[in-house]
Amino acid sequence: MQIWNFFLIFALAALLFWSLGAFFAWKGKKALAVGATVAGLAVFLSYVIVLWIALDRPPMRTMGETRLWYSLFLPLMGLIVYSRWNYKWLLSFSTVLAAVFITINLLKPEIHSKTMMPALQSPWFAPHVIIYMMAYALLGAAFVMAAYLLFFHHHQAPSDKEWTITDNLVYVGWAFLTLGMLSGALWAKMAWGNYWAWDPKETWAAATWLAYLVYIHYRLRKQGNMRFALWVLIVNFALLQMCWWGINYLPSAKGTSVHTYYMN
């Protein structure tokens, strides 16, 4: 029997543990949340290792195999951020995303044999995408906080606690965005021989990175119009969407952009 036939068992067990971890996180039981999430990671990693041994190669050649890494890394990244900054919602977010990728693997078994282009089989590809997902989640949460403080706060000045939450979301999200850009550069170097090609997606990523850096420096000054800082976050989130979709406002670079493939 093919090893993929056992995937459902491992996937359901891992999702059960991750869901328990998310539940315990919301209840404020950090030790149980971490323990359950680690147990789920151990179960899912066991399947990846068994698949690796059965295939006699790293499982990174097909779309289905790559989504296994998405499903593994997402709860891991969520666990790291939750353990450090105690954002209770992150374990729920990472669990839902992991469940989406697992469901796709279960409902579309044909992707298990659909070989991807060689560039997407790079060991840097999956971490690059996962890190970006975590950056988008955190910076998206910062946008929600900014919108709330601007439009639903009844014209009251944000409290120190609310500023701390907003700033920390930006700091951590910006750090993940930086790591995502660096891992993407390493991926491009391995696949095409250059770290940066100035394609639309890379250009928007650079603009977004700089825009959030402006917010960080503005807030560290602790001076000026703080509502302006919140509006900067609103604008930055629009740039973040451009970064995600890679809106082509520039002439196409020579050759086909790698991002055309991984967004499809």
Rank of each mutant, 00 (worst) to 15 (best):
T164C: 04
A191V: 12
A191C: 13
K189T: 07
S183F: 02
K189D: 13
A205V: 14
A205I: 11
E202Y: 10
E162N: 05
W187L: 08
P200D: 10
N168Q: 06
Y195F: 15
G173W: 02
N194T: 12
F176L: 12
A185C: 15
W198H: 13
S183E: 00
T203S: 13
A191E: 12
F176N: 00
F176P: 03
T178D: 04
I165A: 13
G173E: 00
W187F: 05
A206R: 01
E202H: 12
L179D: 00
M190C: 00
A207R: 11
T203R: 12
W196H: 12
A197R: 14
G193K: 13
L177V: 02
V172C: 08
V170K: 03
W196A: 12
A175P: 08
G193L: 11
V170R: 00
L179A: 09
A188M: 06
M181C: 10
A197Q: 14
L169M: 04
G184A: 06
K189M: 05
W209F: 14
G184D: 08
N168T: 11
N194P: 05
L182S: 01
M190Y: 01
W163M: 07
V172Y: 07
W187R: 09
Y171A: 14
W204N: 04
A197H: 10
W174N: 01
W187Q: 03
T178K: 02
Y171T: 08
K189I: 08
T203Y: 06
T203W: 11
A185Y: 06
A191M: 11
N168I: 04
M181I: 15
A207H: 07
N168E: 06
A175H: 04
W209C: 12
A185R: 10
N194W: 11
T166C: 04
G193H: 12
T208Q: 10
W204E: 06
A185K: 11
W163F: 14
W174L: 01
T203M: 13
M190Q: 15
G180R: 03
A191R: 11
A197M: 13
T208H: 08
L179I: 10
A175R: 08
L179V: 09
E162M: 02
G193Y: 12
A191D: 11
T178L: 09
T203G: 09
D199N: 13
A197N: 15
F176G: 00
V170C: 01
P200M: 14
T203L: 14
T166Q: 02
A185H: 10
P200Y: 13
N194Q: 15
G173N: 00
